[in-house]
Amino acid sequence: MSITDMGMVRDVTVSDAGRVTVTFTPTFSGCPALHVIRDSIEQAVRDLGVTDVEVRSTLTPPWTTDWIGDDARERLRQYGIAPPAPTGEGQLIQLDAEPTRCPRCGSLNVRMTASFGPTLCKRMYVCDNCREPFEAFKSV
């Protein structure tokens, strides 16, 4: 999975003078990897032989898991992480979590075991059909 798979890269421009500007948006505002992502973007562009690089971050429009492409969703599922369901127009305060499928057997007969997971973007489930414990992307 790359940051482009995640839909985090919003814009890339090249000026007449050869300056490359990459605009990206964070997934979660408190993501501790933001510094690393920013530095990695700059390094990746420099590795292409560009010397003048600017990396910008933007909050608008806010990142959504709907931007994760179909191909990336399938790779997440094969890896064992349930891809995010479409976000839709949910209410602000809703107590029911979005439906999630087991990445192994596809069953909807799953239970959330923890509403927060090892990273800000995931939560923990177990499948009551095939007994697989798995991580699922939050729909944001």
């Binding site: 806010p62 509403s115 927060f116």
Partner: peptide, 17 residues
Amino acid sequence: AEIAAKAVREEKFHVQH
């Protein structure tokens, strides 16, 4: 408004929990 639009999405999960 941009900050709020970002943060409110995260806060939704806190309220649920």
